[in-house]
Design a protein around this nucleic acid. Structure first.
Length: 496
RNA sequence: GGCGCAUUCGUCUAGUGGCCUAGGACGCCGCCCUUUCAAGGCGGAGAUCACGGGUUCGAAUCCCGUAUGCGCUACCA
């Protein structure tokens, strides 16, 4: 079994395109076959420099590695179509020789005119008017002798039908009269997608072609080409596209970000693969979490949907959280650290915090925040107060729910005393003492604890208070409490 | 306009003639746990299976129409 991904290097593949890649890759792995990468750079005008490198970087990060392709090479290369021009020229010649193709000398201008005319008259069928299909040999020779540029077109049967097999939906039947004599070889000697694709898939021994269902309308052209060459067809699956929340094909417009965006925002490759695999494919009626290995074992084309699916970032976030929670602490540490240490402008901790971070401290912090993280980037947004010197927050946050400023201040003073007196700086005894204090003050623990929480972290939402103070340490906790006392005192009108 | 594909809770999906008064998951709401936030547990709202006709004792499941959406209609892929 051999599958391939055949992108054109015209920009960054986004999450929607990635889904088809995941299917292809999973299928190849499932079948113990090869997954190849072939770059379809046949449109010089649209080729973006660096696009291939970028793509490969994204793939590497995802752990989706081609068995053959531009970087690793392989027995059926080259893997850039721009380096295979001789193949296409040869096969175009074959088509001309066998009468399945013909030279077309029409200019771009004439083609535009024909199209404009057809549209103006609201003709049911648009497309090339096949003028050159019946050109007398003398004219062809004369044109050739005169050095006139030409394209090679496919000679589509005028009537009858062509059936395009699609493993997902059966056979799709097309009336030949609705088909166009598609251009196979452009006048610059480059092939069009249809031509290069068929030839390369054949020459590279591709057994299963997975591609977006936007290719379905041109499937009969490919069938005709396979027939013209007398080649066996690979199994073809036109998988549905991933759509934006407006139901249209996912694109940059929908915030369809390139793959590396997800890396930079702290998503785990395994979560993305899991999410994407279940977009248009399912295992059974209750499973939605499968590891990469399990996916490889379980994946099959039979359970791929034919309807398009809308990309749901919320669900990806949830799944990402599931994967983060399942990470062994050391893995989490290794993976989260770069997100914390990167510059603040890139989402890291405030720049005032010295790098490198104390790994032991980070480990303890992550122990507390692991179950609160949805992305690795959260490791930086949830935790600055563990590392910062001074805290900034509105003084009124120190006033627990249902308390007035004076009561809160008094409570906080007592809390400071109780904590400062604590014989051991350990979570359980600390909590015990604080609960006793609440009792003594006739307060509920909640509001009292909230005052301490804000004093010590500057936030209203944190991991459990006493474990947090444990990580912070006695000295820092008490110092922050002192600072809070001063802040609240200044903010509270004296009772005099 | 022509051609093609698709259509089950807001979203991802299960379902291949009776097990479906349609199951699971995300999200949402409520309750529990609880010092906050999460996580977790429990429960709830949410789909006349796009609509209309058939076939059948029986249809989300088969057939035919209609509608809607999407895609293609380039010397782009």
């Amino acid at each position: 079994m051999r599958t391939r991904f055949a992108p054109s290097p015209t920009g960054q593949p986004h999450i929607g395109g990635l889904r088809t890649v995941v299917f292809s890759w999973l299928l190849a792995r499932h079948g113990n076959g090869q997954f190849l990468l072939r770059v379809e750079d046949t449109d010089q005008k649209r080729t973006v420099p660096g696009a291939v490198e970028n793509l490969l970087e994204g793939f590497r990060w995802m752990g989706i590695t081609p068995d053959e392709g531009p970087e690793v090479g392989g027995p059926v290369g080259p893997y850039f179509q721009s380096q295979r021009l001789d193949h296409y020229a040869y096969y175009a010649g074959e088509l001309l020789r066998t009468g399945h193709g013909y030279r077309c000398f029409c200019t771009k201008e004439r083609l535009d005119e024909v199209r404009a005319d057809q549209q103006a008259r609201h003709l049911p069928t648009t497309g090339y008017d096949r003028l050159c299909r019946t050109l007398p040999p003398e004219i062809i020779d004369a044109n050739l002798a005169g050095g006139m540029p030409f394209t090679v077109r496919l000679k589509v049967p005028l009537d009858g039908v062509t059936v395009a097999p699609d493993i997902l939906r059966g056979e799709v039947v097309f009336q030949n009269k609705t088909l166009e004599d598609a251009i196979l070889l452009k006048s610059d000697g480059y092939p069009t997608y249809h031509f290069a694709n068929v030839i390369d898939d054949h020459e590279m021994g591709i057994t299963h072609v997975l591609r977006g269902d936007d290719w379905l309308p041109s499937a009969p052209l490919h069938v005709l080409l396979y027939q013209a060459f007398g080649w066996d067809m690979p199994i073809i699956a036109q998988v549905p596209n991933v759509m934006g929340n407006d139901g249209k094909k996912l694109s940059k417009r929908h915030g369809a970000e390139p793959i590396l965006f997800y890396r930079d925002n702290g998503y785990l490759p395994e979560a993305i693969i899991n999410y994407l695999a279940f977009l248009g494919w399912s295992y059974d009626d209750k499973t939605d979490i499968l590891s990469v290995d399990e996916l490889i074992r379980a994946f099959s084309l039979e359970r791929v949907h034919t309807a398009g699916a809308i990309f749901d970032l919320e669900r990806l976030r949830w799944l990402n959280g599931v994967y983060i929670r399942a990470l062994p602490l050391d893995d989490l540490l290794a993976r989260a650290l770069p997100y914390m240490e990167r510059p603040a402008a890139e989402g890291g901790l405030p720049d005032t915090i010295a790098r490198p971070l104390d790994r032991d401290l980070v480990r303890r912090v992550l122990t507390l925040d692991q179950e609160r993280m949805k992305t690795l980037a959260d490791a930086a947004t949830l935790t600055p107060f563990f590392f910062e010197e001074t805290l900034a927050y509105p003084p009124e946050w120190l006033i627990g729910k249902g308390l007035d400023a004076a009561t809160a201040l008094a409570g906080l003073r007592r809390a400071y005393a109780v904590l400062a007196d604590a014989p051991a700086w350990e979570a359980a005894p600390l909590e015990e003492r604080m609960r006793a204090l609440a009792d003594e003050l006739g307060q509920k623990p909640g509001p009292l604890f909230m005052g301490v929480r804000v004093a010590v972290t500057g936030r209203k939402e944190t991991p459990p208070l006493f474990e947090t103070m444990l990580v912070l340490g006695r000295a820092r906790s008490l110092a922050r409490l002192e600072a809070a006392l001063a802040l609240l005192a200044a903010h509270t009108p004296s009772p005099a």
